[in-house]
Computed example of a mutant assay.
Amino acid sequence: MSTLLAFDFGEARIGVAVGSTELGIPHPVCTIAAVDNDTRFARITALIAEWQPQQLVVGMPLSLDGEPTAMSKLARKFGQRLYGRFNLPVDYVDERLSSAAASNALDETGVRGRKQKTALDQVAAMQILQGWFDGAIMAAPPD
């Protein structure tokens, strides 16, 4: 059994989810709302110490036609920093429409509009981790 942490990377917020290979079910953890890397990585360091993951997963934002975007480069750089700091394997999952799916999932639970803001990134990270469990791992992150 392995524990995984998944990240929905954004410039303003990073959603985090956790899951284990034994159950294959993602769970929300938190949203890191910090724009400076020192604060972000201090929080990620604490999460890694708490959850002791064996694998990290980063959502790769691609355009609807599957092409890399400016955010793709930032997400890849974020994944490289995770690997460099924590020496844990990092996989990438195509996260196209994960935020829309997260918003729909929250709608279904009765969380709508502005109330979604605090949970949306965490639920998007859950969608990314579910993609990993479903085998949607990218062979290599796009340039």
Rank of each mutant, 00 (worst) to 15 (best):
Y83M: 14
S72T: 08
C30S: 15
G84D: 12
T31A: 11
S103K: 10
Q80G: 15
G19Y: 03
W51D: 09
C30V: 13
P89H: 03
P68N: 05
N87M: 13
Q52D: 09
V58W: 00
A12L: 14
P28L: 06
T3P: 04
A6S: 12
A125L: 02
Q122A: 13
E108W: 08
E50Q: 11
I128D: 00
E108R: 14
R96W: 07
G19F: 02
G10L: 05
A136F: 03
G19Q: 00
E108V: 12
S2W: 14
S20C: 11
Q116N: 12
L106H: 00
Y92V: 05
L88V: 08
T45V: 08
G131E: 03
A12C: 14
Q130S: 08
Y83G: 14
A75W: 03
A139K: 14
A102M: 02
D107H: 09
L23K: 11
L97H: 14
R96N: 04
D91S: 11
P61Q: 04
L4I: 09
S20H: 02
P61T: 05
P89V: 03
F41R: 03
R81S: 15
A100G: 01
R81Y: 12
T21W: 08
M126K: 09
L5A: 08
A101F: 10
L5W: 06
A140K: 08
V35R: 15
V58D: 00
A70L: 10
G66S: 08
K115Q: 15
V18M: 03
P61R: 04
E22M: 15
S98A: 08
A46K: 10
G131T: 00
E11N: 13
R13I: 12
P53E: 02
F9S: 03
L64G: 07
S20P: 07
P26Y: 00
Y92G: 06
G59S: 05
L56C: 02
D91I: 09
L88M: 10
K77G: 14
V16L: 03
G84F: 12
V123L: 09
G59R: 01
G66I: 07
M138P: 06
T31P: 01
R112G: 11
P142A: 04
N37K: 10
L106Q: 02
Q80M: 13
D8P: 06
G135F: 00
G84V: 11
E95Q: 02
L47K: 00
R13D: 14
D107E: 11
Q127T: 11
M138I: 04
V93N: 00
S63K: 13
G15Y: 02
L56T: 11
I48L: 09
A100N: 04
N104M: 15
P26F: 01
R114E: 12
R81T: 15
R114M: 14
D94W: 03
P142M: 05
L4S: 01
A100F: 07
R13W: 13
S99H: 07
V111G: 05
P68S: 02
Q80L: 14
Q54L: 08
A100P: 09
L74G: 11
F7M: 00
Q52V: 12
T21V: 13
A46W: 02
L5G: 03
I48F: 02
D36L: 05
F7P: 04
G113S: 07
V29M: 01
V16A: 06
N104W: 14
A33T: 12
A105N: 08
E67M: 11
C30M: 10
S20N: 09
G79Q: 04
T39F: 11
R43V: 10
Y83Q: 15
P68D: 03
V18G: 08
A75E: 00
R13S: 12
I32P: 07
I14T: 05
